[in-house]
Design a protein around this nucleic acid. Structure first.
Lengths: 190, 190, 190, 190
DNA sequence: GATGAATGAGTGTTCATTCAT
DNA sequence: CATGAATGAACACTCATTCAT
């Protein structure tokens, strides 16, 4: 019964994201998630080893789809700046269309669950970005500093700006996004 | 009658920060915090209204001390770039000396507890930074964009770089900090 | 899956009544009731919404069975006096056989839990008595006064006399019950 | 400091009665009573051995004052019926003026605290009633049955009728009180 | 595979009481 | 005498997980 499986699993994914957004990580119990997904709590243990597994799988799932969205339409032969700009706008689009996914990852990344993650599991999805940036460094278009520093000024500000909790006063207008990319580029460009 | 015991309150603060760092927000129960502070669980309710109050007060306390540390030695008549650089290094120093405080705030800010915060309670401590930046904008030294955008490229990257969870591969050497400030300044300068 | 266990629910009912009798309402905690019923405290919440629900349900259950016992063998066409006498003796029998049920209701009725009761929920079981008395009034066999007054002299004294706490010195002999009914009848008869 | 003592003790008495009425026996904790009386919880233990002692003393206090009120203007040489009628009206007056005292005694009498009472402590206050009734029996004015039975039809119905919880539908008009006494007298008269 | 029942261990909080001043 | 601080034990209730079907 392949179909049935996937419907339940999707329902669990949706319920998990929804609940964590509405009531937070702490309050999102297995029973509540099960009820939200209209499934028995025991059923969760058919699909996942335990609660941690459910939460971690949900996180990975979102991260994978974020990276796919970010890389849509990217060709590694594009000019560096154009490629980064495209990625930037892709991310903003994705985040503003899926704020609930994004907020889930924010909560997850700062919880101890994240320690159970194999970091490479996530990083591999973002390798293309890393490759583009490395190319920029090699071509002396981008500053030659540690990748984490570049990332902190390229991608991380997106998270801050898209996070309603952290940027309460900022509207995500086209104008503002454009300005933000200018700052990002000025920061990293050679 | 006995008088309230400053030492106990400090022990509760320390225990809260320590436990949240070690086992995370979710697992940090009142009983565990009390045991860590070598105090009865009931005693917590002498000093705080409830668990939320304890966590929120701890957060505010840290934020206040971070802002004080950041502004140490700052004179608002200093040249803009020098002032920001000083703040930058102050923050790095503080965070690297108090990683546990910092990690606490990261977990807190992404938990639903943060919704109970009056945002102005925190923002007021960071007004001097805001004033310095505004002066830079007025003097056409800093780009004229929304403050939240400037902040996202000035102060938030510090958080990422100092956060061991997010920047696993980066060592916080003098060299790296220096590089990072260059990026920050390039991002925001006019 | 398992099915709900009638035996467990009965055990909870018995344990609740027993404990309230032995140690009183105040001291009858959920954990103690669970232990008495040889059940996990959590199991109580499978069968009842919360502690109040358990106590209220237990009360309603007893009241229903008391009214059923009181009305056993009653035909509304019997002569008024005979019917009331039969009810009287039924009540005494029931109460003396189930002192523990009765004492539970006494404690319950004088606790704030009783305010959560829908009064009609209870009263509906005692409507037949009310109808018999009304017939007595119509036939000028019983005094034409408010039903609550008649009740206070008919049924309530049973409670007092059967209550060991209130009538410590009285033995519930056949003789005494007979005498008591004479008083009740003299009080209400036209 | 005699005066101060009595003020505090009175405040504790008032607070106890008030709280038990408002939130019930179960919820009336020592700390809450102390706060209501504007006194430290520790102070209660200066005046009373423990919580039980406070509750029991409060009960005895009320019972004594009820009996005093009931016997006001009673001369043991009055005709039996007049004496009883006077007592009856006294009780109604007292109860309707002090419903909070009365409700306290109702809750107390049905709690396990009452087992710690020396019954004679209370009964001695009601001896005059008992003597009057005994005289009635001797004079063949009152039925020769056990005193507890007579009491169950004389004084207890007052409790029911005055108890708002038990007689929700009854207004305590002059008319109704008069009717009720007729029933009481008819019940016990020879 | 899927379920609701069942649970021991734990949750945040309040309890009656004692301590130190 | 009078107090607020302090507490271990208990409170009602929920947790993540397993059981029996």
């Amino acid at each position: 019964m392949r179909t049935k499986d996937e419907i339940k699993q999707q329902a669990l994914f949706d319920a998990t994201v929804k609940l964590v957004n509405e009531i937070g990580f702490v309050a999102s119990s297995v029973n509540k998630i099960a009820k939200e997904a209209k499934v028995s709590p025991a059923t969760i243990y058919v699909y996942y080893k335990n609660k941690d597994d459910l939460l971690i799988s949900t996180y990975i799932s979102i991260k994978r789809s974020l990276s796919e969205a970010a890389l849509a339409g990217i060709d590694e032969n594009m000019p560096i700046r154009s490629a980064l700009k495209k990625i930037w706008y892709n991310m903003f689009d994705y985040i503003s269309e899926h704020t609930e996914y994004f907020q889930y990852t924010e909560q997850f990344a700062n919880s101890p669950y994240s320690e159970q993650l194999n970091p490479e599991e996530i990083e591999k999805h973002f390798e293309p970005m890393q490759r583009i940036i490395q190319k920029g460094i090699d071509q002396k278009i981008i500053k030659d500093v540690h990748f984490d520093i570049l990332g902190a000024f390229t991608f991380y500000p997106i998270m801050v700006l898209a996070n309603a909790r952290l940027s309460r006063n900022l509207e995500l207008t086209e104008e503002n996004i454009k300005s933000a990319f200018v700052l990002a580029w000025d920061a990293i460009k050679y």
